[in-house]
């Protein structure tokens, strides 16, 4: 089997006395749309936070494309090509939709003070190409008419689209999507699924937390079930859903 794009090994993360991740190990194959499901409190979002570097794990190893990323700061991990979205959208509320995307562009010479003084031409050129790219993504995500609106004024569903749109700015190798379908109306949902499929066809790998089982059925293969901070089962959704251990994890009683 080829080396996984994302490899999580024996990762432990505690909050006080609670082990949110209790030796969690899983692989995400390059080019897959891997689903991550599990009951509330299974550690799914904690796993995202640890992988994306927002909190450091107490133990274990995480590798992205073979390079270790555990313990590295979040901004450094983002630059390695790992993007993520948030379960509850976090728009930069007082900035425009377009600016929300521009901020996500990597390696901007204009973000360094020395560059601002010494390389105005390079910066202007870069800025023009970043804007072009952001506008292209906004059209792709059907957000273009809202480009100059403050991001805080978008509807809940539009904010979800903005989450994904921003994540695309860095040309990521892998995107971690935290419940992309939650709170999205059916029309928007179809559009979201179509976008994810299209990006997948272009070679983007996804790891996706979702409670909407229709969405999981439609998009994800394989599906990993997380329970009590560990990987419980992995496989095609059709198999996983019949597994007695999974039913027990969700229902709390032996099936």
């Amino acid at each position: 089997m080829a080396e996984p794009l994302l490899a999580v090994r024996d990762v432990v993360k505690r909050f006080g006395g609670v082990e949110a991740l209790a030796g969690c190990s899983l692989d995400v194959a390059a080019g897959s749309i891997t689903g991550l499901i599990g009951p509330n409190g299974a550690g799914k979002t904690t796993l995202f936070n640890v992988v994306s570097g927002l909190t450091a794990p107490e133990a274990g190893r995480i590798a992205l494309g073979g390079a270790r990323i555990d313990g590295r700061p979040g901004h450094a991990i983002a630059r390695l090509g790992l993007a993520r979205t948030f379960q509850i959208p976090r728009p930069l509320a007082r900035m425009t939709v377009l600016e929300n995307l521009l901020v996500y562009a990597p390696d901007q010479a204009g973000e360094r003070l020395r560059g601002l003084v010494s390389r105005p031409k390079t910066i202007a050129r870069q800025e023009a190409s970043i804007r072009a790219r952001a506008n292209e993504i906004l059209r792709f995500m059907e957000l273009a008419p809202l480009a100059s609106d403050p991001a805080g004024t978008l509807s809940g569903g539009q904010k979800k689209l903005l989450e994904l749109a921003r994540a695309l700015m860095g040309d990521p190798r892998i995107i971690l999507l935290d419940e992309p379908g939650a709170g999205v109306n059916p029309t928007l949902m179809r559009s979201l699924v179509a976008r994810i499929r299209e990006l997948h066809a272009r070679g983007v790998t996804f790891l996706l937390i979702e409670h909407d089982m229709d969405l999981v059925t439609e998009l994800c293969d394989p599906v990993i079930v997380l329970a009590e901070g560990r990987r419980l089962v992995e496989g095609p959704f059709a198999e996983v859903r019949r597994d007695p251990r999974v039913l027990e994890a969700y229902l709390g009683v032996p099936a």
């Binding site: 994306s52 927002l54 983002a78 976090r90 930069l92 996500y104 901007q108 910066i123 860095g170």
Partner: peptide
């Protein structure tokens, strides 16, 4: 400038700015 844009992003939400790759 892009520098100022990064500052405003940090003001709005530090976590998002981090995920966006800003130190």
């Amino acid at each position: 400038s892009p520098f100022g844009r990064a500052l405003r992003a940090i003001r709005e939400d530090e976590t998002v700015a981090t995920v966006a790759g800003k130190n």
